[in-house]
Amino acid sequence: MRRILKKSLQKPELAATLLLVVLIVVFEYTSNGFFLSAANLRGFLGLMPETALVAVGVTLLMISGEFDLSVGSVFALMPMTMAVLMVHGWPFLLAMSAGLLLCVVIGFLNGWLTLRFEIPSFITTLGMLFMARSLTVVISGGFPPRFDLNAVPAPLFAAFVGPGGLFRASLLWFLAIALLVGFILGRTNFGNWVRATGGFLPAAQAMGIPTVRVKIAAFIICSVLAGFAGMLQVMRLGSPLPSSGEGMELQAVAAAVIGGTSLWGGIGSILGGVIGAILIRVIDNGLVLSQVDGSWFKLAVGALTILAVIGNTWLRKRGQAMKVSEH
């Protein structure tokens, strides 16, 4: 029993999960029962997959010991690239592939520049944040291109499905991808290398793990997921905006950190990042429903970030200090 308690205290996503349950109860009460209604869940579950997918990539990358501030810009650049190419007559699949390929290139550049020149990824990706955003505006020509929703299989990504049309197809995409990334991190040798690389780089190197390639792969996965999430948003809204995804990089980092991911790498879980992202959306949505001035949103997220990290650190220490009897 104590062993199970000790193990769960050391789970990185514990604090966030507890907070999530508390907040859902509170908002359900303050919104007079509207929070968990089908009408509200429809809206909530339509938005959530986009930020949560970005958080999945950022979490994986942070566990490998690196950082990506360019995800918000990539979130806008990928669908913009796709839309502009389609305006020029490219078919959907080709345009989407080109957009995702661009994400691969950006992720690779983020990783390669960081590792080749031994500079902090904070700097590399901060630079990429500006460059990718600028590119988005440049190729859009200053105003959003017309995006013919009939020429793309938008229903495949944005149609309401599920019982009573409760959620959109994007939720299924998100669940499949999050499960896959979670599986890769938790159950494969590559996941083991990611954790070792972020957990203690010299040991990973000494054991012969190709740490540079592992990190570059994590950068690429992070960028591709951000771009894919951006595409999901455009499928929902119908038009790519040069400004979409602004501020998302910090929300994604906050989600990862709230979910128990360490800023120093090695510690964290995909589930934690997802719960962190859901928490942020719950606060956004719950404050509005509770008729609180929306300007309080960032204050709440900020306080939550600090609170969750303090909670995580405390719980982990309690868990480690806890003695379990020898067999």
Binding site: N192, A196, G199, F200, A203, M207, G266
Partner: peptide, 13 residues
């Protein structure tokens, strides 16, 4: 790697 379990450490790589 201090943040990983004994079993995982034994087989890194």
């Amino acid at each position: 790697v201090p943040t990983m379990t004994i079993a995982r450490n034994l087989f890194i790589g």
